[in-house]
Design a protein around this nucleic acid. Sequence first.
DNA 1: ATAGTATATTACTAAATAGTAATATTGTCA
DNA 2: TGACAATATTACTATTTAGTAATATACTAT
Lengths: 150, 150
Amino acid sequence: MKSNAGFLNSQNTHLGNRIFEKMLKDSGIDAFSGAQGRIMYVLWENGTLSVSQVCKLTSLANSTMTVMLDQMEVRGLINRTRNERNRKQILVSLTDTARLYKKEYDYISEKMNNLTYKGFSQEELMMYENMLIRIKKNLEDYIENGENND
Amino acid sequence: MKSNAGFLNSQNTHLGNRIFEKMLKDSGIDAFSGAQGRIMYVLWENGTLSVSQVCKLTSLANSTMTVMLDQMEVRGLINRTRNERNRKQILVSLTDTARLYKKEYDYISEKMNNLTYKGFSQEELMMYENMLIRIKKNLEDYIENGENND
DNA sequence: ATAGTATATTACTAAATAGTAATATTGTCA
DNA sequence: TGACAATATTACTATTTAGTAATATACTAT
């Protein structure tokens, strides 16, 4: 299959990240970055999670996550506690401070969506999302078992 | 507009990058990385370009580009020469060495596409690409002039 | 000629991301 | 009990990406 969708995607990621970081900064939010916001997002949506669940839901590597959680703990955004029901796991939860930022984050996300998907109908946006979900599944499947049967 | 397409996209980027880097490594390619490959890609496709054109075509920031080109020059992948017709510009061109890698890069890209868009019809893939192009335009427009008229 | 603009580099700082190898803790199962 | 697997941290290294401010060079237009 020949396509430059992957390249386009990489471009959009760079552009989008730069815009989003600037939006946060311009909104006076210096308590957290875009990358930290994405981790907070899965915690806002799902409540308390184990570290590996946060990795899974953000698609970040374990080595990345430990570093990010360290920072966020120091900045008072998350707490880490051991899961008493399965003491192998560390549970990550948002602090009250972090919870306060949800509204502002949602507002900026919406602004970001408005400019990113300008000209898209509801149907088109849903179609796009569905494709992203299918792509994600393909990539995850490959990482889990596909590497060995090319 | 409410959507988590941006979040999905960020996930797919992480997963895709990890897979692609590993594919390069597993293919024995240690002469360049995925990020460098994307810069080489626009040079393979367009021939010699000025630095700002490479920035534009990769959607990377200028500060990123200088660093990347420094590395690639040291590794013998690109040359920099001053444009004699417009001596403000530096022209970036691929070395013969870099040109040799095109076939292998294309092969790996195709493998990457096959797994990423598994289950997609030609029409769906084209639709996806078209949406990415529209999104890119929206983001570029915003960076160029939209920041001041929200 | 000079002022302003465009192009690019230099020289920083900082953050995000991933990989690896070693270690600690805990749970599971034979 | 003892071996193994799962979960997470620690302690690195390296790369990618962006921002900023200063500087150099070259073109343009008045």
